[in-house]
Design a protein around this nucleic acid. Sequence first.
DNA 1: TGATATGATGAAAGCGCTTCAAACTAACCA
DNA 2: TGGTTAGTTTGAAGCGCTTTCATCATATCA
Lengths: 337, 337
Amino acid sequence: MAATIFDVAKRAGVSIGTVSRVINNRDRVHPETRERVLQAIRDLDYHANALARGLASQQTATLGLVIPQVNDPFFFQVVRGVEEAASAANYSLLIASQSRLPASERRYLHLFRRGHVDAMVLASIEVHAHEVQEIVEQGIPVVLVQLDIGRNIPTFLADNYGGGRAMAEHLVVEHQYRRVAYITGTDHTPDNRERLRALRDVLHENGLDLPGEYVVEGDYLRDSGYRAMQRLLELPTLPDAVFAANDQMAIDAMMAIREHGLSVPDDIAVVGFDDLPLASYVSPPLTTVHQPVYELGWHAGQMALEIIHTQGDRSALAAPNKLLLPTSPVIRRSCGC
Amino acid sequence: MAATIFDVAKRAGVSIGTVSRVINNRDRVHPETRERVLQAIRDLDYHANALARGLASQQTATLGLVIPQVNDPFFFQVVRGVEEAASAANYSLLIASQSRLPASERRYLHLFRRGHVDAMVLASIEVHAHEVQEIVEQGIPVVLVQLDIGRNIPTFLADNYGGGRAMAEHLVVEHQYRRVAYITGTDHTPDNRERLRALRDVLHENGLDLPGEYVVEGDYLRDSGYRAMQRLLELPTLPDAVFAANDQMAIDAMMAIREHGLSVPDDIAVVGFDDLPLASYVSPPLTTVHQPVYELGWHAGQMALEIIHTQGDRSALAAPNKLLLPTSPVIRRSCGC
DNA sequence: TGATATGATGAAAGCGCTTCAAACTAACCA
DNA sequence: TGGTTAGTTTGAAGCGCTTTCATCATATCA
């Protein structure tokens, strides 16, 4: 059996209270006593039981992370970011992927209800504002990633609008494309909407229009870009450039164009959003917008830790609660450069 | 504050022991009493505290998963697999990525030392056999994924040899390539060695040789395939086919070949291993070997749970402790098909 | 009718830690 | 010399559960 604090106390000839103070660097302990305790800890290879500690102190040194069930390397980057922030602070990371169950059965809510975590990071999941509110009201800090529910909750977002603008300007101003089409992601997600808004704004500012038939619906997933592109290719006036809401669809769109006997970028330019590793390997290499995914995760984890450590200190909550991380266009070949 | 078992007991007019029995479906409880307790639980929105429960019962309903720090979508699949196995059994998943710290500081060892998890899954990390032994001796079941330390520990591996053979035969027998080169992964990993062994065997069986200069060293990572291929291209007699230890390097090798003014697969065929999503998008689409990564994770999680539930039942440990999951060649274009 | 199962519940002892009031010690001051 | 005080340490009460053992009805049998 593993050694307990009791064993350490006995060996060092002190009470468990003293051992606890040594472990936690609390109050003052006589240097000699401290050394004796530390020696006993070494001798017994003692490691404090995390559960007992959590129960007694009401702190678990654990962060909860909820991600969608989708199989997307995107989220792995978020996971890595949060994990590294957590482990650098000696916190553990408890992961839950959002299940398809109805809200009443959502397991991830148990994470906090059961006192399992000190804070939660929710990444691009479907969640109701009142659910989040409930968590926060129970005293568990929540940080959101790529997900905005419009309450006063710390939120980390990639700058979708800014990235979308930069890309749109690249197409419209530098390349002088005149008929730009857009393949949407899932309609309700804010990232998709921001990217579309950016394109529309840039077009307007340049005296151009985004006709309804140039906005075709996709869902971010494989194939949907292909089908969307097919619809565009049936139009009487073909676009000269296509902005897809993510790389996956952009790549599928390129396929559709090629199968249609046209060339990318000579006949139709194609650009995406995300900068998947994949983007640089397709041919032509995809021009896209880089998203700081790892950084989103890292900052979110960091923020969660900060809030934990300033609990009750209301002034801390006055910090900006919506942070945009910069996105940057990655110019390759598919735009015509 | 969240309701405790005490609150529920008071509201239902019973003792906490009875509430506990209802929660855990233990012993028998009078149907009427049970209903009264359940109603109180609903009324108070009670959720048992996981820490207290874990402390009292010495079971945490949590699985620990350790992955390398590498940034590889491969591991995300493993994570997903384990996570789904865990959550289907109402277990949580605690993740730790292996840090670069010296063994004495390896945080993930704390996961179990501190009584945090009921079992651990170690995935392709660097670990010493005696460390694993120590964990097991403390009564924490361990399951390995893509990692073989040669002890009597349940291990899930992709069938690297089988997949390597199938691919090698495709090259040598069907395509009749005569000069096949191999770009290695990190030398010490068993997967790499198995794949190489398979190629060598098939060549020998067909009266062919694998000359030393046709085995060039890579490290699985980006660029290393490119450099390895450059070395191959400097040889007096060029290979007619190249087998790379993974897709990433295969793709880089294709680039090097093209930059050298040669064509894939007409001048030199290239195949990989892994079947990254990426593989189907490059041009020509990469012929490779599919690895059941998600399944590896899922089975490992499942096995960990099984061992937990049959603890002490020695007969269970007689089950096969080394499981090969089948890999399958995915024939695309880069092999010449 | 009294002895004996059987079913249902309660009471209390932990699980391994944190934390806080209280106690002890030695040193200092008036 | 008694009273302070600052520095250390102890002891014990939880934290919210599980689990064992004892208890108490009620039903069963000879």
